[in-house]
């Protein structure tokens, strides 16, 4: 099913085949070069730069832990962590709950499944585009689409949404929820793997649909829910485009949409503090790693594996 379960399988037994190192490395050559020069090399360089002061103009200057000490007192950084956490911890559960709810609804032998599936899936292909971020900027503008409706409904003075520090992040969370289509597809695929006889047996025993959902669907779907949670958390920590476009690159109003990645961009490519930006990037890696580890540890208590 997934990259995650593959990682687990690696430990298992392997079958014996004829070893062919030359052919293996030849076919793997592009990937190996990419790994060295595009992925691992830059990672190591980034780790080194995190301990330097570097503005591109002069060679990197080793400053030890200074960048990390500086993080401790960097209010905008702290704020950006708070903003990103809010976005991830509110947006992801809501997005996945909606994806699961709609998938369960669609899976009950609905007529027109392909139509609904397409309509719900389409936004997730467009959600990360600049065009949609521009649309969001209009919709949630002071005199945008939402406020036209609210005025029409007689709401006296609706908020300015993206112009209001209290609501701006909320509009981005909403955009995140709007892209629930791709986890929904994964849920649908998972729901189809659950044998119908379980539900038939439960029905015969008089279990309600609600009971069936909690006692059959949820446990059997839990590995897929887990997979979606891990994937979506990792992805949403890296969100950038929407906040950049909606706030015009500032992360405003009052830094209320200053995503972690946006702050990293401002430091690295706005002010060319490459050393500090690298240190911030590693903080992101550590945060994502911690969240993923928490997910894996917590999964022991709620994810149910059939085998």
């Amino acid at each position: 099913m997934s990259a995650l379960s593959e990682l687990g399988k690696l430990k298992g037994g392997r079958r014996e085949e004829a070893t062919d190192n030359a052919a293996g490395y030849l076919f793997l050559a592009p990937w190996l070069i990419g790994l060295a020069f595009i992925t691992v090399g830059p990672m190591l360089a980034s780790l080194y730069l995190a301990f330097t002061d570097y503005s591109l103009l002069q060679p990197p200057d080793w400053v030890g832990l200074e960048n990390f000490e500086r993080m401790l007192g960097d209010r905008r950084l702290h704020n950006s962590i708070l903003v990103t956490f809010t976005y991830v911890l509110i947006g992801t559960p809501l997005q996945l709950a909606l994806a699961l709810g709609i998938a369960v609804l669609l899976n009950q032998g609905m007529k027109g499944l392909p139509f609904y599936r397409s309509v719900f899936y389409l936004p997730s292909l467009m959600g990360s585009s600049v065009a949609i971020a521009i649309l969001w900027r209009q919709i949630f503008g002071t005199s945008g689409l939402v406020n036209q409706f609210l005025t029409f409904l007689g709401v006296p003075s609706p908020p300015g949404w993206i112009a209001d520090p209290d609501y701006a992040l909320g509009t981005l969370v909403l955009l995140h929820i709007w892209t629930f289509g791709s986890p929904m597809i994964i849920f649908l695929a998972g729901l189809r793997q659950i044998p119908t006889m379980y539900y038939e047996a439960a029905s015969v025993d008089g279990a309600s649909k609600w009971t069936q959902f909690w006692t059959i669907t949820m446990p059997l779907l839990s590995p897929i829910i887990f997979f979606n949670v891990v994937l979506q958390v990792i992805n949403s920590f890296q969100s950038f485009t929407q906040a950049f476009i909606v706030s015009g690159g500032t992360g405003g109003p009052s830094d209320s949409t200053l995503f972690f990645t946006l702050y990293l961009y401002q430091r690295g490519f706005g002010q060319f503090q490459m050393g500090y930006a690298s240190a911030i990037a590693w903080l992101l890696v550590v945060i994502i790693a911690i969240f993923t580890a928490i997910n894996f540890i917590a999964s022991k208590y709620w994810v149910f594996y059939d085998d």
């Binding site: 990259a3 595009i38 992925t39 090399g41 830059p42 990672m43 360089a45 980034s46 730069l49 990792i234 920590f237 890296q238 990645t261 990293l264 690295g268 490459m274 930006a277 690298s278 990037a281 590693w282 992101l284 890696v285 994502i288 993923t292």
Partner: peptide, 10 residues
């Protein structure tokens, strides 16, 4: 699963 941000600067 590696974030692009950690390699983009180098």
């Amino acid at each position: 699963m590696l974030p692009i941000h950690v390699i983009i600067v180098p």
